[in-house]
Amino acid sequence: MKIFITLLISGIFTNNIITHSLLGVEELEKSKTKPVITLLKDCAVLTALLFVSTAITYPVLRWVLAPLKLEYLSALVCVALICAVIFGVYELTKRFLPKIYSIIKENGNMLACSPAVLGLCLMNLGSELITGYPQALLYSVISGIGFTVVSLMFYMINQRIYESNLSDTVRGLPMTLIIAAIISLAFGGLAGI
């Protein structure tokens, strides 16, 4: 239970995939123009991708590459496995779950190429919190939830800012980065927990 709570607080707040590792900031920028439902669907797809890619890559990295001292191949192996997983998921959902396929085909490729997926797979190995396979799987889901929380917070803040009278110089990406910095600062305050 203690490990679960630690992973939960770490994944959602203190080591959030967006605000702490800065992986997936570009998704925030894209989310501004999307309706909430599409945003939630994208977050669900990304969470599923994080889970599946961790489930596939973690055993290979931990139990195959590390004992053979081939860690320098981690990135290459991760990319190859993630690509294989995505093609597999596309084919399976296309055949058996057409409704889910219609959701993932829209943004699946871009989300798969998101640094969040590769970054999390690579960082799982070096993390002190992740001591085994179940923790890695749990952490991948929690990271996805953390991503969703920040995306929703960002969406709500951005809705209010959109209506305000901002200069062209600040509107757009600079404002996205400032909002992300403030959320990062707020979440960083929970580090003591």
């Binding site: 605000t19 702490h20 590792s21 800065l22 900031v25 062209d168 110089t169 600040v170 990406l173 600079p174 404002m175 980065l177 400032i178 992300a180 910095a181 403030i182 990062s184 600062l185 960083g188």
Partner: peptide, 20 residues
């Protein structure tokens, strides 16, 4: 604060404003 990722984001925002 500027050593943290949040600080990096703020610096990125400032540089983007300078670019604009």
């Amino acid at each position: 604060f500027f050593k943290t990722p949040g600080g990096a984001l703020l610096i990125c925002a400032a540089l983007t404003i300078v670019y604009n």
